[in-house]
Amino acid sequence: MKAMQARVRKLLEENKIDGFIGLKMEHGHPAPFMFSRENLGEMETLVVGDVRYPLNKALLKVSGQYPDLTFGVMVRGCDERGITELLKWNQLHRDRVIPVGVACSSELAQLCECYKPYPSDWVVGEKTEGIAKSKRLQKIEGMNQKERLSYWLNQFNKCIKCYGCRDVCPMCFCEVCSLEDRNFILTGKLPPENPTFHLSRAVHMVGRCIDCGLCEEACPSNIPVRTLYKKINEIVKEYFDYRTGESSEGKSPLNLLGEVTLELSDVNK
């Protein structure tokens, strides 16, 4: 914590950044907040813990308002992947973001089943090994078709259409959302069209989902959407050899025509 506070203070004092988006302990709750040179006195309240907020989403809002300023942001492994992708999707400018890393605790890494629970560089925490294969994915893959169908139909039927998964998602930056297209998703109907609503969002997560899991944490109905998007990441890796957010090279497979690497026999298995 002290190391993080010292690093942020230094960055601000040396004018490397104009603001730092992190968490501030207030009223006993950690809350998203921007530390700047005007409120250096509050640096003591900067905290790092296992509570996570979509700080990249806050960064998009602030940097959208001040495109010429440079901002620091607290990143975990997932947030760093997010920044890498947001740069590729032209939502941030490379010279305008300075990430300050946090390595996740082993408990959090286990809970998330994160394959890389640490950023490339960090000032707080210790590196813990990632989890190569998600157990929740294995559990569903072990079911037969009928079990999978009834599992997901039941899960999707719990949806109260709060759009929380989308609103919290740091990778959802579109100005127009197809899930709000009334020709596509009927309005005034609960649960929303099952499975169109959830599968459409899943398709949109191709090359975007950084597996931060905020969607599932935000879901008031506890739908295991994260498992669905973990599967999407696996599909993208298997078919296109693309790991979302891992490298600044290459673009998301559905964001780029590229060359064709698949054959009909790969698709109609």
Partner: peptide, 20 residues
């Protein structure tokens, strides 16, 4: 914008569409 409070003992980090 609005964000659910993750550490809130009532809503535990969830909100409905009105809250969002």
């Amino acid at each position: 914008g609005a964000q659910p409070c993750k550490t809130d003992s009532v809503s535990q980090g969830g909100l409905c569409i009105k809250g969002w």
